[in-house]
Write a protein that binds this DNA or RNA. Sequence first.
RNA 1: GGAGCCGUAGUGUAGCCUGGUUUAACACACUGGCCUGUCAAGCCAGAGAUCGCGGGUUCAAAUCCCGUCGGCUCCGCCA
Length: 586
Amino acid sequence: MKRSAGCGSPEASFDGKEITVNGWVARRRDHGGLIFIDLRDDSGTVQAVFDPRESEQSHSLAEGVRPEFVLAVKGKVRMRPDGTVNPSMKTGEVEILVVEAEVLNSSLTPPFEIKPDINVDEKLRLQYRYLDLRRDDLHECVRLRHRISSSARRYLEDRGFIEIETPQLTKSTPEGARDYLVPSRVQPGCFYALPQSPQLFKQTLMISGFDRYYQIARCFRDEDLRADRQPEFTQIDLEMAFVDESDVMAVTDGIVASAFQAAGKVMKTPVPRMSYREAMELYGTDRPDLRFGLRMSTLDDVFRETGFKVFAGTLKKGGSIRGMKIEQGAGMSRSDLDSWTKRAQELGASGLVWFVLGDEGFRSPVTKFLSEDELADMKSALGLEKGDAAFIVAGDRAGCDDVLHTLRGEVARKLGAVDEGDFRFVWIVGFPLLEFDRLEGRYKSLHHPFTSPTEESFEMLEHAPLEAEARAYDIVINGIEMGGGSIRIHRREVQERMFKMLGMSPDEYEAKFGFLLEALEYGAPPHGGLALGLDRLVMLLAGRDSIRDTIAFPKTQSASCLLTGAPDSVSGAQLKDLGLKTSFDS
RNA sequence: GGAGCCGUAGUGUAGCCUGGUUUAACACACUGGCCUGUCAAGCCAGAGAUCGCGGGUUCAAAUCCCGUCGGCUCCGCCA
């Protein structure tokens, strides 16, 4: 019995029509004389009524049917009797009166119920991923992901971008994340690397004269996992020739807006910009969540002459005093404040000083150490009003910012200041080109080594490298780093200077990036691009907490696939072919 | 590499701190029966776990200790 309609399609206009549907038994309600079965397929769910007066055969078949059996059902669509309409169902106005039914397949009792919002160990969900994906909410995540990538494709293709595939078996390069390696059989002892991104290929395509490239690209990074990090993930990757920052940002705004539209949401463009410097000053991070206040200020000048030893000592050592205004925070109890202090210490602060501005002025464990002037100056520096609170952290600037940035999110959530349905977008621009890595004792690219410095920064590259500014830009939504890109270096000598800055010798960068340097010498056009994290974008729009829910077959924190059992050991013959030996017993 | 949380019938939890009156409890799911308008159907009955795994302490361990495996969150790491 081949289907003539989807389970989600019947509605009032179908009244009287005979249709056949195929689907899974979502629920079965047996009244003895009458059996209701909700039949589900990709299109939705519909109620089928098995009435022995209509079909003895179908009714007795329905008695033996169990959840997740696969049925074919032929019947007449009719309006439901008065009082039995189900408004929470899309097809709730109608039902199918079954005249003929057939079991296409039976099913074991599933290890968990196939319905939305279940509370089941993720281990089990991943092991039976095919059943997990059958559940409406996760099923919809996967469909949303398709709509978003599809809308991105449409948007880009309408603007002249073409999709070009780049290799998955490529060359391992220094810089960046750990590579996934693939041994070569034909060249024993040599390895391919899976791409961390198509970066070098897309730049090469610009040199080939493809004006606008895009790719929904799979990327691989062998680093430890997080809720928003998987070893393989997907980027909406693009590159454009003869452009500046504004061109790339405008296209990106459009892609994100089309993704929001695909999710039934509205987004205003253009996305506003904020300098890296401002983001760090006000939010202590380069990916600020702008849905709520709790802004920060630097209070070094306020406490320059203070008698309060903790602050004076910090300033003397070249540290910083950073404060965060907490709007309407005065209602926090003493035990709340104590637990935030404890939390700050967990995060690495040596302490947390809190102030509450109530009717009688400031309350704080340290008011007695501070002068009236200092309190007044602090109040105006932070913009405190009656009913607010403030958290102050003293120490090295980066450490203070880390602590306050983390507290900011947690406090806002606790105070109910975060509107979960709200979306706030911002471009962060004006990034430093380089940072100094203390562990390795060398400069590292903040973005990647192919990012162009600004015109003005060329001069300072060697004598004040940390002052140099990158032509890079990150788009941040609700505090999530959604994508980033840059205008690239398109001249060989600049690229060489950059490699040298990163501590690479000419031999080294010739060996690893010689092909790029040479390509730059054959008329490389100015170009730039960006990559958006598709998994994160879907996660945000689906209102999920992990990108695992947006990936059909994700991996666990230890990078294994619970469905298939990957990774797994391989046979000695396979290893021999590759000229490999492991030092572990398998 | 590190920190924290979790692991008890098919599923989700309680019990663990304070070891023994626990025959390991409850809900959902499951099985059987009754039931012609339900949609989380209802009612009745029933089956189902030696408590992730290994070791130790003890007269006695789901419970205390050590180790280990797995899952999750985070730090480091992630150009």
